[in-house]
Design a protein around this nucleic acid. Structure first.
Lengths: 383, 383
DNA sequence: TCTAAAACATTCAAGATCGAACAAATGAGA
DNA sequence: TCTCATTTGTTCGATCTTGAATGTTTTAGA
């Protein structure tokens, strides 16, 4: 074959940088290269390739071996020794609220950051993609950020666009309490998120075990976690063969106090007519309000109506104390920082990690004991 | 298999560094090696292996024994210098194969175990729930296990029963490359698994970007990972709006050599009639066979048929070298041990972690360049 | 304890690879 | 266009890696 001599470069010589890039490509494809093969392939002398290999080896990008080069190996003493990486990094953190939920996440992150010798720069944002991006950009511009932990708003096309932008940033990005949907190929994004769906399922199964056979769900559709809670509730119903179409699913997101009371009465009516004896209530603040309403209406909790709150900020304050699903907020922050530290230390070779954390079910008084049913209870004047 | 003499490097010789890496891998996978076995396996003389062992022993990475080498042992006077070596915990590990896939997982686990000062006890099992349970029970009975890493068979009712049993064990249990289905409430089980579905999607999107518009899938239905690969393939097709019902999905699991050739011809016929110009082939061994078949039939790879293999054990040996999705096997083991160490250290307060790792796409020659189509290619006599 | 087989160390040689020195070519800037 | 700095190529002796040959040590079994 006459063409055997022809290098693939088609006669044009490459600059050394391009050549080294090619060399690394071959290396990534085959794991190892011989000086001879590459020299022939690129149409340059072996000595040139050897010099390239030396350069790359000095930067720690390859391991030199007699006859060629391999991907950096831990057995290669030249790279193995000099990497204690005492270098300290700065990590930006953008969260959608500094009042609710996120303080504990931040606190977990700060604690771990201290252990990992990282600096954390926190910025609050709104539940809004445009503002998320503004805040991230501000961190990138003014601070010297080595990595980013962020909980972006993912609604609509703007959310997807934001995710694509985050995925393309030159620094590692870790989502907190968010997951990129699989249809957008954010192949570099890592995340750590609570499995709210699992948490909801746990609550439903707990209520089932206490003897409840119709279990409803009250949600707050304004919260980003709400869809996951609903999904978990539905899956659990399906697994327990509770008919979904007969089960109560109400939303009292945007109601003010007066309307809320009316809505709660409506819910109690529905419970009575469907035989529902237990409710999963998303956001424990709302659960507190609902329990209060039940007590006001003479509905015994948990006797006539068992309640599990989703989230555990204030659930213990109610009378009776409310059982609640508690997301591992501080661990979300902690694990995010662990991921970031490992990513910064290990670089690209480390595979993308995506972590689910399970919440915990805290059983208090509002959900224990067999159901007595609501049938005999009359609103307005019980007994 | 033609001859057991054939080294598995397929004739390509390795550099010394790669050989030593392989040696360490075998060592971590099996605990001990004989000079002879490795020499045969890598196709070099025993003397060479002995020299490698000496080199590694000088660095304290192995302990020399008559006939081979073992992992560094505290009994070995030459390494006994600065070792606290009081193993805090023992972790059992039960995997379904010691020949395929799992050696690298075990190697990663052992490497991390050393860093975490844990002891790992490995047992091979069959791809069978009953045997899994037997092996776990044996570890529980005879060794003093503080934790368990296991890759159980999850098929059928027996698989579910096994998971429930594992979930109820008094020690922490971590699944490797397995996920408990959400319908069984294994609320204590943690896991680390490769997101094969993501990997398949990555391959499809890569082929799409290279210009392919009909992308088929060849699977091996006997493998537990196969369903995930197929799911990822289907999802990616849907996302790219490739009609699933017109796309090729064939299985050549239980075919012997002659039938396989026929089946491959059948597949090529289908490709021609559907306009399919690219295939995702599960298990890279099968991908190698398929590429070989294409070359034999005068079908140009990648010009007329682009191929991406799933898994990356031997893909680089084919001619042309096959692009492949590479699961992060050693990280699966490594992360499992990290999870276990943290669990043993922190106890019940730590939330349950469930980790997905993304595979990597290694682009080689078999998938690059725009498709030319199969239309003009005639089987049996090209040109 | 003794013996045979296997494993090991040592030496040497062949072949390949490497690197120093110098020459030639190339590209950027005056 | 010319010059200088940088990159690349050639030559050749030095160095590295591997394997065969040979003698010594270790191991397992009688």
């Amino acid at each position: 074959m006459s063409s055997e001599q022809t290098p693939e470069t088609g006669g044009k010589s490459l600059f050394s940088l391009q050549r080294r890039e090619r060399l690394m490509e071959e290396l990534r494809a085959h794991g190892a290269i011989t000086v001879r093969d590459i020299a022939v392939k690129l149409g340059v002398s072996e000595l040139t390739i050897r010099r390239d290999v030396n350069t790359l080896a000095d930067e720690g990008l390859v391991s030199r071996v007699h006859g060629g080069a391999t991907l950096p190996s831990p057995l290669d003493r030249s790279v193995a020794v000099g990497r204690p990486s005492a270098h300290s990094y700065s990590v930006g953190m953008v969260v959608p609220s500094l009042d609710y939920y996120w303080p504990q996440v931040i606190s977990g992150a700060r604690g771990e950051a201290e252990a990992q010798n990282l600096r954390i720069l926190v910025r609050g944002s709104a539940y809004d993609a445009a503002d998320n991006r503004r805040q991230v950009q501000a961190l990138l511009d003014t601070q010297n950020i080595d990595g980013l932990i962020v909980a972006p708003d993912m609604g609509g096309e703007r959310g997807k666009e934001l995710l694509r932008w985050l995925n393309a940033l030159p620094i590692p990005v870790i989502l907190a309490e968010r997951r990129a949907p699989s249809e957008i190929p954010a192949h570099r994004l890592e995340w750590v998120a609570t499995d709210h769906s699992f948490g909801a399922g746990m609550a439903v199964r707990h209520l089932w075990q206490e003897g409840h056979r119709m279990i409803g769900c009250l949600t707050d559709s304004t919260s980003p976690t709400s869809p996951h809670v609903v999904r978990g509730w539905k899956q659990a119903l399906a697994a327990l063969k509770i008919p979904l179409e007969k089960s109560i699913h109400e939303d009292s997101a945007k109601l003010d106090n007066g309307d809320r009371a009316k809505h709660f009465d409506h819910v109690l009516d529905l419970c009575r007519s469907t035989g529902t004896t237990a409710m999963l209530v998303h956001s424990d603040t709302q659960a507190v309000a609902f329990v209060q309403h039940c007590v006001d209406r003479g509905v015994d909790v948990p006797g006539s109506m068992a309640i599990v709150g989703y989230d555990d900020e204030v659930a213990y304050l109610a009378e009776p104390a409310i059982s609640a699903v508690r997301p591992p907020k501080s661990y979300v922050g902690k694990v995010a920082v662990q991921l970031m530290a490992a990513r910064l230390a290990e670089g690209r070779m480390r595979p993308v990690h995506r972590i689910d954390l399970n919440p915990e079910l805290i059983v208090r008084e509002s959900s224990v004991g067999a159901p007595r049913g609501l049938a005999g209870v009359v609103l307005e004047d019980s007994l």
